[in-house]
Write a protein that binds this DNA or RNA. Structure first.
Lengths: 189, 189
DNA sequence: ACCTGAACACCGTTCAAGT
DNA sequence: ACCTGAACACCGTTCAAGT
């Protein structure tokens, strides 16, 4: 089908195809066979390039988080960064079908050294004056909220249910503001 | 196998069996065939008592939420109620294997009348002086946070990852306190 | 009314075999 | 090195048929 220059698959084309299938079929329809078909290949071929489906989903989740981090540069203080990040993460989840559910169930793909991971994740908030522990905890809190909210937003029947009894769309910002406003820097005071 | 008094199945026995399978196998192992086997019956028999698997999961989710509501009586003000409810919901999720994931993906089973649902859900907070809109929105915010946090807690590899870079267990309360402290009653501007 | 048997159209994954 | 074919042990769901 093609082959002169390089293999049929590689990790990037694989993840790209997986996102394409996700967009068309949703997470429940994201099967190894459909991803393979999208690449003009048989399902077992995928296993040459990736250990299993969990690894593929983990790589997709990493991309979704990475988009959110990339979308919030130039914040003036840590509260502003958390507000920007919360909004960006919500948008990144919403940009892919079932993005939040994917990230909630995916295994993390990360550097083997915890210190490395911690430093990289904490960096943007540490640069704005937060101590490293708070940087990580505050992010975990914001991510948890955005993830939970986004799961409801993407769950069709649940979203309909909520939208009929409250202004669900506006509630996201209400909650995010409350969280960021309620968090307090252990340094200051 | 038995039959003198009543049918082999009924909705309650069915949901009970589903929770038993969930405990043993997790959400991915919760299959119609295994639930049926647990009841000494063939898989298609289940479809006489329940429309499909989604309905069964919805009923299970309702039970999980109900436990949390039942666990926080006697609060003195709406902030205290939200704190109690957040902790109770986290415990209710943790009591079942994959409880949070189940509730995140389940379709709501509810009264057909939205007003009914809204009134029932808002009731405990309205009784403590919150206006109905805030009662619903604040609950949605707390539930979103607890759900997201509980999903990470129940995702083994993710939990390990987080626990290595922060005091993940303590973070729950930090976040819950921030949210409840940051929310403000529109009545008492 | 309530359940079984058999079938349909799928899954993820393994593994020998091809090229 | 990279992919196919065939298979294994599963899924949720439908539906005629039994009792």
């Amino acid at each position: 089908m093609r082959r002169p220059n390089g293999p049929e698959l590689d990790r990037d084309r694989l993840i790209g195809a997986a996102f394409a299938v996700l967009a068309q079929e949703g997470l429940d329809g994201l099967t190894m066979r459909k991803v393979a078909a999208h690449l003009g290949v048989q399902a077992p071929a995928i296993y040459w390039h990736v250990e299993d489906k969990a690894m593929l989903l983990g790589s997709m989740a990493r991309d979704i988080y990475a988009d959110a981090y990339a979308a919030c540069p130039g914040a003036q203080d840590w509260r502003q960064w958390l507000l920007q990040f919360g909004a960006a993460l919500r948008a990144s989840f919403a940009r892919r079908r079932d993005g939040a559910r994917l990230c909630a169930t995916a295994k993390p793909v990360a550097h083997p050294d915890p210190k490395e991971n911690a430093a990289r994740i904490a960096a943007p908030l540490v640069a704005l004056g937060l101590d490293p522990q708070a940087a990580l905890s505050f992010q975990a809190v914001v991510i948890s909220y955005v993830l939970g909210w986004s799961m409801f937003e993407a769950n069709g029947p649940m979203h309909d249910f909520l939208d009929r009894i409250m202004p669900f769309g506006e509630t996201f910002q209400t909650g995010l503001d409350a969280i960021v406003g309620g968090l307090s820097n252990p340094y200051a005071h």
